[in-house]
Write a protein that binds this DNA or RNA. Sequence first.
DNA 1: CTAAACCTTCACGTTGACGTGAAGGTCAAG
DNA 2: CTTGACCTTCACGTCAACGTGAAGGTTTAG
Lengths: 132, 132
Amino acid sequence: MRISELAREAGTTPRALRYYEEQGLLRPARLASGYRHYDPQAVGTVRHIQLLLSAGLNTAAIAEILPCIPDDVTVLAPTCPELLDALAVERARITASMDRLGAARDVLDRLIQAGPAASESVTLRRREQRPS
Amino acid sequence: MRISELAREAGTTPRALRYYEEQGLLRPARLASGYRHYDPQAVGTVRHIQLLLSAGLNTAAIAEILPCIPDDVTVLAPTCPELLDALAVERARITASMDRLGAARDVLDRLIQAGPAASESVTLRRREQRPS
DNA sequence: CTAAACCTTCACGTTGACGTGAAGGTCAAG
DNA sequence: CTTGACCTTCACGTCAACGTGAAGGTTTAG
């Protein structure tokens, strides 16, 4: 498949896919015309990339991790041994982020509880406008 | 207290505090010399700011939320009613982020489980080089 | 009274993951 | 054989939360 089709399948843009390649996350074949050619596997790979990016990993970290991911049969684990430390570090970073997110959500929850109570006398109407 | 002291107490930098003020998150008094003067309350406020920033809220969102937070007696809830939607939106954003983080952490966990098993036969040495 | 250690306001630099044209080659359809 | 929808490679723009001097005023300790 070509770059635009992959972008549609994976829910992203051609620009992002070129960027991933520039960062060493993807290695598409090239047609005689110079066009990039991706195999269907790439869809899952790109989804993994997006997931890890949304988890706060940068492209360098993903570049280390990605070859070890099951569905990716292309390169298959070249730097796996030393990688375990990096994996643990990222895992800890993710857990720390989740903790901070939880704490911040608690703050918002307290606001959501305290807010309406404070303005209980004033507001409390205008809600009957929406039947469903 | 002056800006550097507040920065130390809250674990940040003067530059960040000036930035928060520029974004409307802090309103310190001014001495005759032009120096900023903060009351002790500000320490908690700054900690709240950092917490919400680390949760992915931007300064604009925090500027809306901050006046409603308990310890902050300075302004006290000017736009609280319509704010509840914004709070819910941010809460949902945080929950979604936590879900993605959890999914990504699962991916890493699967790698941490599968990785050592796969390279078990090949690696396992080279670790005795570093004594300390 | 002077030097160190603060403080002030510009104002440009940084980082990461892309967005957004620009200028031009390629390919299927009419 | 020409349109139009693809594709290619530069290469600069963006956004957010600050970092980092620059140039100068203020306060405090000796």
